[in-house]
Write a protein that binds this DNA or RNA. Structure first.
Lengths: 234, 234
DNA sequence: GCTTTATTCAAACGATCGTTTGACATATTA
DNA sequence: TAATATGTCAAACGATCGTTTGAATAAAGC
């Protein structure tokens, strides 16, 4: 146990706390690279400079460690969405153009955290893998941030186009928009090869981000105009 | 060996040919579900009604079987792109609107093969996984169809917007467009849950497809108009 | 017929997997 | 200081992995 038996407060940053941290750090790298089943506890332990048994001791086993890693990852990624939701909650966003601007900013944040950032190379595959083939830890991601994020983006998409956020088509469009990242993350290697890039740093990230932002604004504005036309006709 | 030692022609559909087929069929299911490393040769063999050793015998090992499965999968998916390229080669496509129409048709084909079709549930994860984390068999997919497909779509995107197909931005936009599928495939489970669907059949597929097609036309038309405006200003 | 080739199959091989064990070291409590 | 948690570590456990072996079976060539 990491807590005193008498008080419910951590007495001191126990010596185990350091081990836990090192295990989590090593596990993030391994799970990101090889997935839950593919990663080996022995490799994780060696990379962390710890004994194999320490994983069972500190996290109850491989799966417990995995859940903890996922939890930390999704917390970091969701920060952008949480900030966006706060702005949205304050009611400062009213007209479509503002919504589009906010969405562009949001996509920029996610892009930086998930793709351009060095740590993102570790976070993204974790989350993507859990989408493709959910393990028992899927809820850690979904309830830990994914659901909130999707709902918030849906509201903004609805605002931008001028439709209800609950409309199934709006939900589909939200998925489609956010799917851009899944596409970028998923085809990361292919895209890098095709462009002849080494990574998504500097100019490269700017170029990709520009396309993403352009897509968001052109698409949403186009859909809004299309809706206006139809409304005018009927 | 499946061939006569004297003639380079298969003497008869050897008894082994049947085993090979059953192994390939079972392997497609297993590799699609669990990936190259995750799938077990014993499970594959049992599902195929064959002995474990038959995999090494017929395909030289697990990896050989995997390559063969990949090869067949990419061949099936690339059919849509090949048809599109033939039309493009005949020079019947000239103006942007035609290009957009052809792209919409192409995306429809890919969508049906990769997402709506029952077999697609098997093909898609195979290809996506190879994108996220390329194995030694990556070239089977890339050279087996992916490259041709991307080049063809790039040409059409260039035609639709009125820019060069070799422009890096055009390549990025092509990736972004095709990434829609990666997004749909990757988040398949999440999307189904969110929409309360069981699968992508019937109305569900139509609804998703409608959004995808709308995205393609609205985005490309919007980009074309944007380009016209800019050209007019300068 | 006999020989050769193609195919199937149960068994065993060595390697690696996640987890558990029990001794040992270290820190906290009384 | 004695007693008690807390943390570390080498070793072993049983299970599963992909591959290989060698004998048994079936078809084809001569």
């Amino acid at each position: 146990m990491r807590f005193s038996t008498k008080l419910e407060v951590p007495v001191r940053a126990g010596r185990g706390e350091r081990s836990r941290g090192q295990l989590l750090e090593a596990a993030l790298v391994c799970f990101s690279h090889d997935g839950l089943e593919g990663a080996s506890v022995r490799v994780i332990a060696r990379r962390a400079g710890q004994n194999v048994a320490s994983i069972s001791y500190h996290f109850g086993g491989k799966e417990g460690l995995y859940r903890e890693v996922l939890s930390q990852a999704v917390r970091r990624v969701s920060e952008a969405a949480d900030m966006m939701r706060r702005e949205l909650g304050e009611g400062s966003v009213q007209d479509p153009d503002e919504a589009i601007e906010l969405l562009k900013r949001f996509f920029g944040s996610v892009f930086r955290v998930l793709i351009a950032d060095k740590q993102g190379i570790l976070l993204a595959p974790l989350i993507v893998r859990e989408q493709t083939r959910p393990t028992a830890a899927f809820d850690v991601i979904y309830e830990g941030g994914m659901r909130r994020t999707h709902e918030t983006v849906s509201r903004l998409v609805g605002l931008a186009i001028g439709v209800s956020a609950e409309d199934p088509v709006t939900v589909l469009r939200t998925h489609s928009l956010m799917g851009q990242f899944l596409g970028l993350i998923t085809a990361r290697e292919t895209l890098l090869r095709r462009m002849g890039w080494k990574d998504f740093s500097g100019h490269n990230a700017d170029a990709v981000m520009a396309v993403v932002e352009e897509n968001v604004s052109v698409l949403l504005r186009g859909l809004r105009q299309q809706k206006k036309k139809k409304a005018g006709k009927s």
